[in-house]
Nucleic acid binder design. Structure first.
Lengths: 199, 199
DNA sequence: CCTTCAGGTTAACGACCGCTAACCTCCCTG
DNA sequence: CAGGGAGGTTAGCGGTCGTTAACCTGAAGG
């Protein structure tokens, strides 16, 4: 039991602030002193919780990829088999949008700082990402049986680009409301997928 | 007359290699010695061509934003007024796809390293980017008069995310051919825009 | 033939950064 | 009430990085 009520452990505080700082200024652009200052301790105190700066990034990226994948697997398993593949695709889109709207710094890190990882961690993250993509590709090919797999894969990557554009959509305050934005993104993703088949 | 035939000046060589390296490992992740080595000279020799490392990034980002904007303005001006706004939108999409496919490192830098710029340069780039976005928003609102401006702006940013996903689409060799990829992206962008109106 | 200058070179400086060492201070527990 | 570990602190080391200084060279031009 890591998290109890609403109180974040020091370790979770560090991860959250590190994610924000890494997203804002890049992994190499943030010093450990800044990360420490963001949680109220100073510099080397971080080494009581993490073996090094790299380990924070690794835990963030592995965590993101893992949560995306397990969430998608759960949605796939919980889907009503009689409802048809379109409903499953909608569920995947909804889950990804929730993540993109709630964890914007992590979305930014996700495809930006992967190359700063140690080889073993990078391979793990890439494997999780690939499984996630292939899961989408499988569902997409069920919804649109006429679409070839390579086209489906490209389409999935492109729609991820669309959904992950949330960091560019302005501050959460200036958005027209979370539900409205989510709906807009959902319709656009569906529209983009629907246009793949029309060749 | 900067470029003559096909020979790149030393200055252009440096910019090209710097763009590639910055895109691969991030601005802070690349040293001046590496940039120099990539063009066959060593380290501080770069300072005969640029006042500093920052200046290379600044010239790259200002160049990208400027070329995108002027290209879009040209397409808007050259469009046949009788052809209708849909054709203009297609022309904008086509231009952006050409850029995304031909200058993938610059696409990566475009929205990743903006914050590493000096204040004045960053303001200039942001202004160029904003003009580019507003130009798209204007055309989009002509094609879909029922779409409100804020929704149109969000939609444009999201479609940029979709079109700029080309760096994630695998190496140019593994793609099914430039024309096919361009067509796929174009249809998806159109499909995404078309789905905005259906609320 | 001498000068000039564009475009290189290497050496080195100063700042910064990740990390370690050494030490301190509560709080929990037998 | 000892004592030990969790979680801090500051000082400082070693390496890297951007930048400058000083010097070299080959080609153009009067």
């Amino acid at each position: 039991m890591t998290t109890r009520t609403d109180a974040l452990t020091r370790r979770e505080q560090i991860l959250k602030e590190a994610a924000r700082l890494f997203a804002e200024r890049g992994f190499h652009g943030v010093g450990v002193d800044e990360i420490g200052a963001a949680v109220g301790i100073s510099g080397p105190g971080l080494y009581r919780h993490f073996p090094g700066k790299d380990a924070m990034l690794a835990e963030l990226l592995v965590g993101i990829s893992g949560r995306l994948l397990t969430g998608a697997k759960r949605r796939l398993a919980e889907a009503d088999p009689a409802a048809g593949p379109g409903v499953v695709l909608d569920s995947l889109i909804e889950g990804h949008i929730d993540f993109a709207l709630d964890d914007r710094p992590l979305i930014t890190l996700h495809d930006r700082e992967l190359d700063r990882l140690r080889d073993s961690d990078r391979k793990l993250v890439r494997q999780l990402q690939r499984q996630y993509v292939e899961l989408w590709v499988g569902v997409l090919c069920e919804v649109y049986p006429d679409v070839a797999e390579p086209s489906a894969r490209s389409a999935v990557h492109s729609v991820f680009g669309l959904l992950n554009s949330t960091p560019h959509l302005g501050r959460p305050g200036s958005l027209p409301g979370r539900g409205v934005t989510a709906g807009l993104l959902h319709r656009m993703a569906r529209g983009a997928f629907g246009a793949v088949a029309a060749e």
